[in-house]
């Protein structure tokens, strides 16, 4: 009886730590997503500005401390490629977040079940 109870406790502990790990991953996911969302907005703003320009407009890119002149077409291509990458990354994050949330709910249920079993076991201590 005591051994079974101990085992239950151990199971509970492992499940709880797994749950908290998932929760940590979810917060991390939120942080990364926020960063990407900000970058996405910034890139879109840049794209809008580049679209407004004439063909002969001078565009520079800041590389380290120096400004390097860039082809407008190249700059546009670079920005749209980056937006594409960020969008793909955001989608990937969405999928992982969904998976994480699903496993969070199932883990939470498992933890609750284990807690109930332990609590149900407690008053039964006196019984053989």
């Amino acid at each position: 009886m005591a051994a079974a109870k101990k085992e239950l406790q151990q199971q509970l502990e492992t499940q709880v730590s797994a749950l908290s790990k998932i929760q940590k991953d979810i917060t991390k996911n939120h942080q990364v997503r926020r960063q990407y969302t900000i970058q996405h907005g910034e890139n879109e703003m840049v794209q809008k500005e580049l679209e407004l320009l004439d063909d002969e407009a001078n565009v520079f890119k800041l590389i380290g401390p120096v400004l390097v002149k860039q082809d407008l077409v190249e700059a546009k291509a670079n920005v749209s490629k980056r937006i594409e990458y960020i969008t793909a990354e955001l989608k990937r994050l969405d999928v992982t977040l969904k998976n994480l949330e699903e496993s969070q709910t199932s883990k939470r249920e498992e933890v609750m079940k284990l807690q109930q079993r332990i609590q149900a076991g407690n008053p039964g201590k006196g019984r053989p």
């Binding site: 970058q39 910034e42 500005e49 580049l50 001078n58 565009v59």
Partner: peptide, 21 residues
């Protein structure tokens, strides 16, 4: 003038264009 439009890109603009920006 050179306008910093973000993500490291700078665009050369005339004064009225810069003001418009």
């Amino acid at each position: 003038v050179l306008v910093d439009v973000g993500t490291g890109y700078f665009i050369e603009k005339s004064l009225p264009e810069g003001k418009d920006y």
